[in-house]
């Protein structure tokens, strides 16, 4: 278990290292002159020079890269060009919105998907199964931002139950904050839940045709107990894979959903930074999101080993 973790950790740092190179090359090397990109074509030569000086663009590429990475490792993400505050502060502030949003969405989608998927598998081929599968088919096809717009129309504009967007800040009370996150979380969670439920169902159906399920039944265990004790746990192995991949979609989803609801989150920060050509914020913001995705993949890998003893090498 330990050495499995170490190996995985090594892979994780390698991926992050490679990702940092990609981000750096795309944003700092390929554009030629980042200062020109940030200021636009009409910029004066002396303002350009000043910005280059401020960003340290006159240093060799390698030095700039090393400085950037070392800075991030120490929590220094540079100074945002548009907001003129440390990017680390911006990220911390925005993460306080995005992370709870992603977490609520993930919990919500799992909480919806697991029981539904298990039920569908249990009543495979029956009307209930057909109904659930039809619904999930539509759920998958639902673009989350359109679903979000519909939710806003129904619950905010028509029924006036919930805010249509914006975020009051956690200092205005946890409940007010949560209230602002409910609709975005649902919009994110439901399409994800549809996918997850389908994966759960098919994984469980596969597992239930295994020989050891028959063995369990031969011991006298009832169909229901067998499903829970031997089926669900083993079905979790493929489900976890998808759950890990889904986090990547979830991150993508937050970027859009935060825009629909005008939430001051990480995704919106990066999105606005790109329209304002604030490359410094984009660079570090993207890196943070990538790190988040990679970290979740790592956690999923560990969960894998916890579920499947065959992955724990040695003893």
């Amino acid at each position: 278990m330990f050495s499995y973790g170490v190996l995985r950790l090594l892979g994780l740092s390698l991926t992050l290292f490679a990702a940092s190179i990609v981000v750096f090359v795309v944003l700092e090397v390929l554009p030629g002159d980042p200062a020109q990109v940030m200021l636009g074509i009409s910029a004066q030569e002396d303002t350009l020079a000043a910005l280059r000086e401020q960003l340290g663009l006159n240093a060799p590429v390698l030095t700039r890269y090393v400085d950037w990475v070392l800075g991030m490792l120490q929590g220094d993400f540079g100074i945002s060009y548009t907001y003129n505050v440390p990017v680390s502060e911006l990220i911390a502030e925005r993460a306080a919105v995005s992370l709870p949003l992603a977490a609520i969405a993930l919990i919500l989608s799992t909480a919806i998907a697991f029981p539904i998927g298990i039920m569908a598998a249990r009543f495979r081929g029956k009307a209930l199964d057909t109904g659930i599968m039809g619904l999930t088919q539509v759920g998958i096809a639902l673009p989350n931002f359109w679903f979000a717009i519909l939710l806003v129309y129904v619950f905010a504009i028509t029924l006036r139950l919930l805010p249509s967007g914006g975020f009051p800040g956690w200092d205005q009370g946890v409940l007010n904050g949560l209230e602002a996150l409910i609709l975005p979380a649902i919009a994110l969670a439901l399409p994800q839940a549809a996918i997850l439920a389908r994966v759960m169902r098919s994984a469980l159906i596969d597992v239930m045709s295994e020989d050891y399920i028959r063995t369990a039944r031969a011991k006298g265990l009832s169909a229901r107990v067998t499903l829970w004790r031997h089926g669900v746990r083993n079905a979790l192995i493929p489900v976890l894979t998808i759950l890990g991949l889904q986090f990547s979609f979830l991150v993508a989803g937050t970027v859009i959903i935060e825009n629909v609801f005008y939430l001051p989150g990480l995704g919106r920060l990066i999105f606005q930074a790109i329209t304002q050509r604030d490359l410094i914020t984009v660079k570090s913001g993207v890196m943070v999101l990538v790190a988040l995705v990679v970290l979740i993949t790592f956690i999923v890998d560990l969960a894998y080993a916890a579920v499947d003893p065959r992955l724990r090498r040695g003893r």
Partner: peptide, 8 residues
């Protein structure tokens, strides 16, 4: 590549 969702 999986670490970079299409949006990013």
């Amino acid at each position: 590549i999986f670490a970079f969702p299409a949006i990013l």
